[in-house]
C-alpha cells in the first residue's frame, strides 16, 4: 500500500490537514519529525504548511538545514515524489530543490481566501491527472507567496514546461501569475495554495482532490523520460 511521509518541522501547522487528506484518499501516512534521517519505506513525501523554525531569517531558511533535509534531497534525486505546500514550497526553494524564491506579497498583506487557479503543465506528480487549462478553486493562506525568479530562470521554467499552476487573478504579485512549479523531472513540486484544504465540497471545494489523488498514485519515476520513451515507441 502507498505510504506517504509528512515532514514535521518545529512550527509546521498543516501536518494534520495534510495527513487527513491522505487518509481520505485511502493511503497510509506517517508524521516524520525533522530530526529523522531515514526516509526508507515512503512512496512520497509532503512538506506541509506552517512556520518552520518560526520563519526566522526567511521562510524556509533554517528548515533547509534540518537533519531530515539531506534525506529529502536524496529521495528527490532518486525520483521520489516530493510535494511542498505553502511553507513547504518555501523550504524546497531555499533548499535549492525547486527554482526561484517566495517573497512578501505585493501590498504586504496576509491573504487567506479561495483562489481560482489554472492548471499549466501536467508533467508533474501533482498535476498529471488534471487537464491543461483546467480551473480549480483552492485556498491560499500566506504572507510570503509572491513567486520570484530572474529572467533566465523564468525562461527556463517556460521552456521546460515547469509551471504547474497559475493564478487566474494574481493575488500576491507572483511573477507570471505562478502559483506552483515543478523541477525539470516533474517529481518535486511546490505550490502556495493548500490542496489539502480543498478535499470536500461541504467545506468549500473538492478541487484539491485531483491534485492529491495524482500525487499519491504518481509512479516513482522520471515522468519526462517515460513520456519521451512512450513517444519513441
Amino acid at each position: 500500500m502507498t505510504r506517504i511521509g509528512v515532514i514535521v518541522f518545529p512550527g509546521s501547522n498543516c501536518e494534520y490537514d495534510a495527513s487527513l487528506a491522505m487518509t481520505q484518499l485511502g493511503v497510509d501516512v506517517d508524521l516524520v519529525w525533522h530530526s529523522q534521517t531515514d526516509l526508507s519505506g515512503f512512496d512520497g513525501l509532503i512538506l506541509p504548511g506552517g512556520f518552520a523554525h518560526g520563519d526566522y531569517l526567511r521562510p524556509g531558511a533554517l528548515a533547509r538545514f534540518s537533519p531530515v533535509m539531506d534525506a529529502v534531497a536524496s529521495f528527490a534525486r532518486e525520483g521520489g515524489p516530493v510535494l511542498g505546500i505553502c511553507n513547504g514550497f518555501q523550504v524546497l526553494t531555499e533548499a535549492g530543490l525547486l527554482p526561484g524564491a517566495l517573497q512578501k506579497n505585493r501590498g504586504l498583506t496576509f491573504i487567506s481566501e479561495p483562489t481560482a487557479l489554472v492548471v499549466g503543465s501536467t508533467n508533474s506528480v501533482l498535476t498529471w491527472l488534471a487537464s491543461p487549462g483546467q480551473e480549480l478553486t483552492i485556498p491560499i493562506n500566506h504572507f510570503s507567496g509572491a513567486y520570484t525568479c530572474d529572467d533566465l530562470t523564468y525562461e527556463a521554467l517556460e521552456a521546460n514546461d515547469q509551471v504547474v499552476l497559475r493564478y487566474k487573478d494574481n493575488p500576491n504579485g507572483s511573477r507570471g501569475d505562478i502559483a506552483g512549479v515543478a523541477n525539470r523531472e516533474g517529481n518535486v513540486v511546490g505550490l502556495m495554495p493548500h490542496p489539502e484544504r480543498a478535499m470536500s465540497t461541504l467545506l468549500g471545494s473538492a478541487d484539491g482532490r485531483v491534485l492529491l489523488e495524482g500525487f499519491v498514485s504518481a509512479p516513482r519515476r522520471d515522468l519526462r523520460a517515460s513520456a519521451a520513451n512512450a513517444a519513441a515507441l
Partner: peptide, 12 residues
C-alpha cells in the same frame, strides 16, 4: 534585494 527584484516593503 537584488536589482530588479520587486521590493514591496521599500515601495510602501
Amino acid at each position: 534585494l537584488r536589482e530588479g527584484i520587486a521590493d514591496p516593503e521599500g515601495a510602501t
